[in-house]
Amino acid sequence: MNLRAKDSTPVLQRDHGLHLLREMLRVRRFEEKCAELYAAAKIRGFLHLYIGEEAVAVGVMQALEPRDAVVATYREHGHALVRGVSAASVMAEMCGKVEGCCRGRGGSMHIFDAAARFYGGNAIVGGGLPLAVGLALADKMTRRKQVTACFFGEGAVAEGEFHESMNLAALWGLPVLFCCENNLYAMGTALERSESETDLCLKAASFEVPSWPVDGMDVLAVEEAARQAVAAVRSGGGPYFLEFRTYRFRAHSMFDPELYRTKQEVEEWKKRDPIPNFEALLRGQELLSEKEMEIMETEIASEITQAVEFAEAGSWEPIEELTRFVYSEGPRP
C-alpha cells in the first residue's frame, strides 16, 4: 500500500483520505468538548489533551488490525477513539458513570477496552512499556502473528523501564511497535534539558532496534512509517521504534501555567496543525468539497453530542459495589 509515489507526491484514495481527516477531527472535537466539560466540573481529576498530536494516533492505528493490541498513556482519549472505543463509553468514563468503559473507576487517565484490545491508560510514566513487552511475549509464545503498539512520550525515555523494555523486546525478538510521541516537553521539561543524547532513534539503535524519525504532524507520513514498521514486526523481525515529532498545542494538563515555553513557539507549531493542513491537501487534490467538510463536521458534532447525552444520562455505580474488582469474581478462562 503505497500512499506516496517515489517523488513523494501523495497518491491518495479519496475514501481513505476522508477517513483520516474524519478520525483526526473526531479526536479534536471530542477533546475540545472534554475541555468544556472540565471547566463545567463534569470531568475531574487530571485531564491531558492530545490536541495537536492527532495525526500520530490516527496514522498508526491505520496500520493495526483488530487482533493487535494497544498500550497507551494518560493522554489516550484519541488513541481509544481511533482504536474503536466508542465516544459515548469514553465520555461516560470521564464523567465517572457506570456506563463508561471502566465503570467510572478509571477516569480520563485509565481507559481500557477488551474488544479493542486497549490495555490502558497508564499514568505512571514508562509504566506501559513492560506491559507491551509482556503482551508481545504472550503472542510470540503462542505463535500468534499479532503486534502490540505501545505509545509513550519522549519524557519516558529517561525512565529505567524504557531501557529495560527496549532491551528485553530486542533480546527476545518480540513483536512490539514502540511509538514515541515526541512533543518536545515532558510537562515543563524540554527534551534537551533532560537528555544528554537527544537523538531518540540512536537510543533505540543502541539496543539493535530498527528506528526512524517521522513527521508526526503529517498523517500520511505517520501511516506510511507505521505500515512499514508493523509489516516488519509482524513478519517476526522483532521490535521497531518510531519517533513521531509532534507538539501539544494545549497545556500539559488543566493545571499548567505554561511557564516553560513561549506563545510564539506554540503559534509557530500551530501553523503545522495536522488537521487544517491535511484538509488543505485534500482540497488541493479536489478530494474534498466545502459541502463534504460541513457534513463531516455536522456528523462529528452529532456523535459527540450523543456521547455527552449518553454520559449525562448515565448512572453512578452503587456505593455498595465499592470493593468489587479488587479480586476477580469467579474463575476466568
Binding site: G45, G96, G104, R105, G107, H110, I319, L322, T323
Partner: peptide, 16 residues
C-alpha cells in the same frame, strides 16, 4: 480507607 485501589468517580472515592 476502603481496601480498593482508588476509584476515579467522585462518589466512590468519597466512599473509599
Amino acid at each position: 480507607s476502603a481496601e480498593v485501589p482508588m476509584p476515579y468517580a467522585k462518589h466512590l472515592e468519597e466512599a473509599a
